[in-house]
Design a protein around this nucleic acid. Structure first.
Lengths: 190, 190
DNA sequence: ACACACCTGTGACCAAAATCACAATCGTAT
DNA sequence: ATACGATTGTGATTTTGGTCACAGGTGTGT
């Protein structure tokens, strides 16, 4: 993939000049992952943002070997562990491929000293962060305001691709219920 | 309150020059609120960040006249409705005083065109946003990973002032349980 | 086609929390 | 001190979702 194609993922977030794009590219590398391979392990410090080109990434807590999913990131979207990134603290979550995936890793820590000279790059990162975190806020509201059946219908309506690509068991922990409950919710909804 | 005192709230977030501080002050005004008065109403577009000088602010959804609390902001902390602010969309949440309060309103929209000349101010705002949103992410994890009793103990340990200043009923919806359940949790914990 | 691993559906049962109802307590203003 | 409203505690009951157990499906690789 060349700069031009990569820019097609960045441009919807912010317009960049060639110089700015070059700076970003200087810290980017591509990686192929098999389903289940981990991009960020528990205890590692996150120093990059990840862009999904194909496949998807799953962010989850490992509670006694049971995955509690917090986020799914699909083609064209960015993710990271912002808390670990900002505070340079070990990550409590794992980010791994939910399918065989092609991922772009932007090691932003490498270029952090150059932000001042490239304010648009700084703004780009800020927008990624805000978008990611608004998503978390909405997810929190979804769980606090709605019943399991309502949560499922919300996903059906607003993120139907989740239902296509994520297994019911994975979706269950994302919605804060067991897989049995979600299976029954789905049975009644038809 | 003069600039110097106000700066004591800003400085822990970021160091600013006199010029930068002056820009921020140019969009700031102080407001006194009685308990229960609303700072941001449902349906309004949020165009400011709020700093609590005394008292506290409560952010909640009104579901059929029942408050579902999402956040409490105490002395020295900032809050806003970032989603409404960024997208210029009507707020789905209400921000109101939980006690008689003194609040500083920073109408950041007024000074947005001047950010480019004051990158530190821009960075200041970004930090506020990230902090606020990491809080939301942690809250989401608290509810998804823990039982009601564990959530209560987490608050006891990590945010004891919530227990001092927020009524049990208000805290209950924040923790995603009914007030009765929280009352029983508390009874057993002693 | 077969075995094997993984995922989903479903019933029986159990536990936890919600709901409903009302009593007790606390706080504030008069 | 009293009255009023708001808040909290608590019992009885219902509902929901979790847990356990197992059957049926699906998909992959050999």
């Amino acid at each position: 993939m060349d700069h031009k194609t990569l820019y097609s993922y960045i441009e919807p977030v912010i317009a960049l000049t060639d110089d700015e794009l070059a700076l970003l590219m200087s810290c980017a590398k591509m990686m192929q992952l098999k389903k289940g391979e981990q991009l960020l392990k528990e205890g590692e410090v996150c120093s990059a943002f990840y862009l999904v080109e194909t496949g998807y990434l799953r962010t989850y807590y490992d509670r006694d070997s049971v995955a509690i999913n917090m986020n799914f990131t699909f083609e064209g979207d960015f993710t990271a562990n912002l808390k670990s990134y900002r505070d340079r603290k070990p990550s409590e979550t794992i980010i791994e491929a939910g399918e065989d995936s092609i991922i772009w890793i932007f090691n932003l820590r490498e270029i952090a000293e150059q932000y001042d000279a490239y304010p648009q790059v700084s703004r780009f990162i800020r927008r990624l962060a805000i978008t990611q975190l608004l998503t978390a806020q909405e997810h929190s509201a979804l769980i606090k305001l709605h019943t399991p059946a309502e949560r499922y219908r919300h996903i059906e309506k607003n993120s139907p691709q989740l239902l296509q690509r994520v297994s019911l068991s994975q979706l269950a922990s994302y919605l804060g219920v067991t897989r049995e409950t979600l299976s029954r919710v789905r049975a009644k909804n038809n």
